[in-house]
């Protein structure tokens, strides 16, 4: 246990806070610690987790992507038309199309960043505006309701009837979420390019000198983000059963906050899939808990804001520094 605190302090802390919060919530609300609620929680965080693991890879590479949520909306529309052109499609084709479109949009970011030496925040703020502007301009803001049946109907992977007659259901997005988590974990832990992404984010100049393939690193990082944005977009449309052009706008900053809460930094070279998932989960549990406790939804965001602000403040004040500070005070 002590070792985990040393090697992965952020993950360990998040886990403790999640367990503590859960313990408090299960005392305050009988509904909290039920299978129904657990599955609801998993279903509801799935889309954010899919986005988050994508963003994680970009952050590890030392970049940032502001455009992914808008890119997901663009992909929803384009995929809708591509799939109807292909005669409706199915889940398999859907994921390929959405993921592929995402890779293309990610590659646009990567290309601008790599070939023109523009920093990622500038590029993705620009593409954010380009994607969103063109989307609203070309679609004129219309909603799409007539999704193909496979896309709009809920897919239940696992269900279980509870004693009181309610159903605990695990739906497709949750399963896809687990796929995205494992794939990303495999990418950044076990593939050579994944380790190169870490190395590049950690020390770009050193990476160049030992001959790391910088082009591949950039394209895979932003391509991965794009792919996850596409798949997340597909799942969000499935979840809502409609496509709304501005449904995802603003999501980028929420996801960013969660990923950073999970220990990734804006400097690159740091972050784990575990931390990233726990970050999203913690934010979801707090919202879920507030919901169960009957707090008005309007207050959710304020409370979440306070928690993130506290978390960021506290996580940056290390106990070693605190001790040194107290010692210094005494020395005066």
């Amino acid at each position: 246990m002590e070792k985990i605190f040393k090697t992965h302090p952020i993950e360990a802390w998040l886990l403790i806070i999640i367990i503590a919060t859960s313990a408090v919530l299960s005392m305050l609300s009988v509904q909290y610690f039920t299978l129904v609620n657990a599955f609801d929680l998993l279903n509801s965080i799935s889309i954010n987790v899919i986005f988050a693991v994508g963003l994680l890879v970009v952050l590890i590479s030392g970049g940032i992507d502001i455009s992914f949520a808008v890119a997901a909306s663009v992909i929803q529309y384009v995929a809708f038309y591509v799939l109807s052109y292909l005669g409706g499609g199915n889940w398999f084709i859907g994921i390929i199309v959405a993921g592929g479109l995402g890779v293309i949009l990610g590659a646009i970011n990567a290309g601008l960043i790599h070939y023109f030496r523009i920093i990622s925040i500038v590029v993705t703020i620009a593409t954010f505006n380009i994607f969103f502007g063109l989307l609203m301009f070309l679609t004129k803001g219309v909603y799409l309701y007539d999704l193909p049946d496979w896309w709009a109907n809920r897919v239940i992977i696992f269900e279980h009837e509870m004693a009181n007659g309610t159903w605990a259901e695990l739906t497709l997005p949750a399963v896809i979420m687990f796929g995205a988590i494992s794939a990303t974990w495999f990418l950044i832990t076990y593939t050579s390019i994944g380790r190169q992404i870490y190395a590049f984010g950690d020390n770009p100049e050193g990476a160049r000198r030992i001959g790391i393939n910088v082009v591949a690193v950039q394209f895979i990082a932003y391509g991965w983000m794009g792919m996850m944005a596409g798949i997340g977009g597909l799942m969000q449309a499935h979840f809502m059963q409609e496509i709304v052009p501005n449904a995802l706008i603003g999501r980028e900053l929420d996801v960013l906050a969660a990923v950073v809460l999970g220990g990734a930094t804006l400097g690159g070279g740091r972050g784990t899939v575990m931390g990233c998932v726990l970050g999203v989960l913690l934010m979801a549990i707090i919202q879920n808990g507030l919901n169960l406790l009957g707090v008005t939804p309007f207050a959710f965001k304020a409370i979440v804001g306070v928690i993130i602000l506290l978390a960021i403040t506290l996580s940056n004040v290390s106990f070693v520094e605190l001790r040194a500070y107290l010692r210094m005070k005494r020395g005066q």
Binding site: R195, Y198, D202, G206
Partner: peptide, 15 residues
């Protein structure tokens, strides 16, 4: 700029 501070010693040596 020689090393990768966030990575392990083994990875740094064998990168």
């Amino acid at each position: 700029h020689a090393l990768f501070p966030e990575m392990s010693v083994a990875e740094n040596i064998a990168i």
